[in-house]
Design a protein around this nucleic acid. Structure first.
Length: 830
RNA sequence: GCGAGCAUGGCGGAAUUGGCAGACGCGCAGGACUUAGGAUCCUGUACCUCCGGGUGUGAGGGUUCGACUCCCUCUGCUCGCACCA
């Protein structure tokens, strides 16, 4: 390593210390400043003590963006904290055989140091750590608020159970029937659990999507996840017990006359009841029981596979058609889900493919009631269901009505008969939040024999998670349940004997309000800080992975809206703009230990420095698309930094004034490039286009090298110094230590991050001449220098006057000339 | 199965939204400096070529004076959703 190399080790350490000592990153949350922006990146969970490349990819560019805004005159709040409760932290503790509190606190300390190495502007005075009592006190407070507003409730129901993690999972954590953490197959279990009524907010969450600047794909995913369906609720009374009925939900009430049977989900308790009490053929009971037993054991993935052949059994009972009174056999089949709608459907084989397949298999009748607008439909000739719109037929007085209108009319008719009516159903389920694990916020509730479930009074919060626990490993029920000292308590209502709720809360509860808590992290008296929220919310830009689209990003919108509705938070939507980071691959595939292609940031930070490492990450590709890591590629950024370094060190000992570069001191070309670069870097950074921002600065430096050549005179150096002072500001957000170093080396006063972003002059970006492209029949044939302000006619005649063009025109006719001012002339000849 | 996105040199990737394809970087080649160069600086680098030019943005077609960009068909990859009634 030669002497003139940029000494990043010393420089980076020096500036980090200087920033800390001079409180450069401290933000005054109570400022009166108007221009304030809250920039947030999703916090990390300390599952070990090392930052991986994904963390860098997430945090460094976000920080660069925040620094850029700061230089544009904004006060920036860019906090960081730790999502330290939950499975990753706990599993790590179990792996190393140490108490989770200890491993978590140690990890946090290490990670904090490593985060510091990134050189981000975090103001650690506003750190949140979700596993500390001063934080989870408010997690519990939130639970009580939801409880008091009727949005937290307890019920027995089927839940997702991960046999390996030994805990309940929310639907969002068990997508595809797999545990989000360990990828074990999730099984269904009946348990009593606490739920938050996110379903109550389904419509509000959908509507809110229109107001926010989030990726369309993410909005779509949330829409699908919430899954709003408009339709009707229809009741089918039981033949043998007319006061009882089966409730179904359908989006196609217009097909009601085509119902030929009714299907119950195996989970529906009516199934056994029908077979037991209302069956014509009671001997089938055992068969029904066996079927239900079997399908309950089938796992979710298998059961919901679309390719699987449908199965079912007849219960022996019949229901009555609400309008015709016809007898309809009641079946049990597992293609009907217990968790959606009412857990029962009216089957219309002619107009629903699933019912069609089932009817074919079990030889149930197919009744056509909708015909296409311009055709006929015969049941005997059908190969598949007709699911399109059309005209109602075989539907008594409704025949001839268009199916779209029929939906409404039928639903209204049923409402009059008190046999149903219009209904909206959602796919989203209430959020189950009880976890049978140790490392989480205890649910602030006690169970009293006399009074039932009683919330812990707010003044008694936090309900501390006991440290003294021998066995915190999961065992199927909460480890806290075995701590009788902790479990036994008195009822806050009657003072009698009571037991605590042994479960802890899902960590998504912790992260559902952390963005609000950051703003009051120094305040231990109240959960939120009204004045600061008014100033700083909503989050201007929120950065995190797309994998949180239907988890955290729904919960944190839900909780923010809830708190807004009860008047505690000034905004309904937490984040105005959302940006997803892409995935960093290596050698073309995702990094994983098993593939052995994991890139360790520490190695590269040690060899090239934090700035070069973060800048190469940003240079690799589009932020939202990610990029492919290359061990060789990083040398390009390293060279680039050193090229600037060598220019700057030429000026050592020289006094550089603060004058902005003056036109005549450079070649016109370089001067123009300077202004163009300032403009482009600014707009690129605003749009998170770090890769092109960096390449622009590279171009400027390349042009500077060509301009300076061997020149060493004082005037040139003076001009170079002024130019580099602009470069220092341009590069500072991307390479903070380096930017600060260059700034000071050139005699800059104060932190470079307190300087204003350089201004460009639009006039200076325009050259006096442009290269006119002359095309013949769409192909480039000549390039001519012309004055920038030449009018269309001049451009045309200039093009026609070209020798090359004259040659090509020999014996041909000019048919048309398209002139694009400032760009090209296309001559159509033939 | 349904839906979305993507496909550009040896490689990572640009392209002001219909107007010079390949910016910037890696790699490679040549030159300069040098005891030396795996440092640095400069030049070149899509492909073919009879040196006139011709061909090129996954494949095929279309719209247009003009298409990486818009439309249709197909192929491949990535990611969602997946019996939601």
């Amino acid at each position: 390593m030669s002497d003139d190399r940029y000494p990043f080790q010393e420089v980076e350490k020096r500036w980090r210390n200087w920033w800390h000592e001079n409180e450069i990153h401290d933000v005054d949350l109570d400022t009166d400043e108007e221009k304030c922006r809250y920039i947030l990146v999703m916090f990390s969970y300390p599952s070990s003590s090392k930052l991986h490349i994904g963390h860098w990819w997430n945090y460094a560019p976000t920080d660069s963006y925040a620094r850029f805004l700061r230089m544009n005159g904004y006060k920036i709040f860019e906090p960081m904290g730790f999502d330290s409760f939950g499975l990753p932290a706990e599993n790590y503790a179990i792996k190393v055989g140490t108490h989770p509190k200890q491993t978590t606190e140690e990890s946090i300390e290490f990670i904090e140091q490593q985060l510091d190495e990134i050189g981000a502007m975090y103001d650690w005075r506003y750190k949140v750590v979700t596993s500390r009592p001063e934080y989870y006190r408010w997690t519990q407070w939130l639970f009580l608020k939801l409880y008091n507003h009727g949005l937290a409730y307890q019920k027995e129901g089927l839940i997702n159970w991960c046999p390996s993690c030994q805990t309940v999972l929310a639907n969002e954590q068990a997508e595809g029937g797999e545990c989000e953490r360990c990828h074990s197959t999730v099984i269904q279990r009946k348990m009593t659990q606490w739920y938050f009524k996110v379903t109550e907010y389904a419509d509000k969450l959908l509507e809110g999507l229109d107001e926010i600047d989030w990726p369309e794909s993410t909005k779509k995913r949330q829409q699908n996840w919430i899954g709003r369906s408009e339709g009707a609720n229809i009741k089918f009374t039981l033949e043998k017990s007319p006061d009882k009925y089966i409730e179904t939900f359908t989006t196609r009430p217009d097909t009601l006359f085509g119902v030929t049977y009714v299907v119950l989900a195996p989970e529906n308790d009516l199934a056994i009841e029908c077979a037991e009490k209302y069956s014509d053929t009671p001997e089938q009971l055992q068969e029904v029981k066996d079927y239900i037993q079997r399908s309950m054991q089938t796992n979710e993935v298998e059961r919901t596979s679309t390719t699987r052949e449908k199965t079912g059994v007849f219960t022996g009972a019949y229901a009555m058609h609400p309008l015709t009174g016809k007898r309809l056999p009641i079946w049990v089949a597992d293609y009907v889900l217990g968790s959606y709608g009412t857990g029962a459907v009216m089957a219309v084989p002619a107009h629903d493919q699933r019912d069609f397949e089932f009817a074919e298999k079990y030889e149930l009748p197919i009744q056509v009631v909708i015909r296409p607008m311009d055709g006929l439909l015969e049941a005997e000739e059908m190969r598949e269901a007709y699911e399109g719109p059309g005209i109602m037929m075989n539907s008594e007085q409704f025949s001839g009505v268009r199916s779209e209108d029929g939906k409404k009319v039928i639903a209204e008719k049923l409402q009059k008969l008190n046999l149903g009516g219009p209904e909206i159903t959602y796919r989203i389920r209430d959020w189950s939040i009880s976890r049978q694990r140790y490392w989480g916020a205890p649910i602030p509730l006690v169970h009293c024999e006399k009074c039932g479930a009683v919330p812990v009074p707010e003044s008694d919060l936090p309900v501390l998670l006991p440290d003294e626990i021998k066995e915190y490993r999961p065992k199927g029920s909460s480890p806290l349940g075995a701590l009788s000292d902790w479990m036994d308590t008195t009822c806050p209502k009657c003072g009698g004997q009571a037991r605590r709720d042994p479960d802890t809360m899902d960590t998504y509860v912790c992260s559902s309000f952390y963005h609000l808590r950051y703003l009051a992290a120094d305040d231990h008296e109240q959960p939120f800080h009204a004045k600061r929220m008014k100033k700083w919310l909503p989050i201007h830009t929120y950065v995190g992975g797309p994998e949180h689209s239907t988890g955290h990003l729904i919960y944190f919108r839900f909780i923010t809206r809830f708190l807004h509705d009860i008047g505690l938070v000034p905004v309904a939507e937490p984040a105005q703009r959302l940006i997803h980071q892409g995935i960093i691959t290596h050698a073309g595939s995702r990094m994983s230990k098993s593939k052995g292609n994991v890139v360790n940031p520490d190695t590269f930070v040690a060899n090239y420095g934090s700035d070069v490492f973060r800048m190469y990450l940003m240079f690799m590709g589009d932020y939202s698309e990610g990029g492919d890591w290359s061990d060789e590629g990083i040398t390009g950024v390293d060279r680039f930094i050193n090229r600037i370094w060598r220019l700057a060190t030429r000026l050592d000992g020289m006094n550089v004034d603060d004058t902005f570069p003056v036109k005549g001191d450079y070649t016109d070309d370089l001067y123009r490039t300077l202004h163009r670069t300032i403009e482009a870097v600014g707009s690129d950074l605003e749009g998170f286009a770090f890769n092109t921002a960096i390449s622009r600065i590279m171009e400027l430096i390349n042009a500077t090298y060509l301009w300076i050549g061997e020149k060493e005179d004082a005037a040139t150096f003076k001009a170079l110094g002024r130019l580099l002072k602009v470069v220092a500001r341009l590069i500072a957000p991307l390479a903070p230590h380096f930017g600060e170093e260059i700034w000071h080396r050139l005699g800059g006063e104060g932190s470079v991050f307190d300087q204003s972003w350089p201004e460009y002059d639009p006039k200076a970006m325009v050259a006096e001449t442009i290269t006119l492209i002359v095309q013949v029949n769409g192909k480039v044939r000549d390039r001519i220098e012309v004055p920038t302000d030449a009018d269309q006619e001049t451009l045309k005649t200039t093009a026609l006057a070209s020798e090359k063009i004259q040659e090509m025109m020999q014996g041909k006719q000019l048919r048309k000339a398209i002139v694009v001012p400032g760009k090209l002339v296309n001559l159509v000849i033939g």
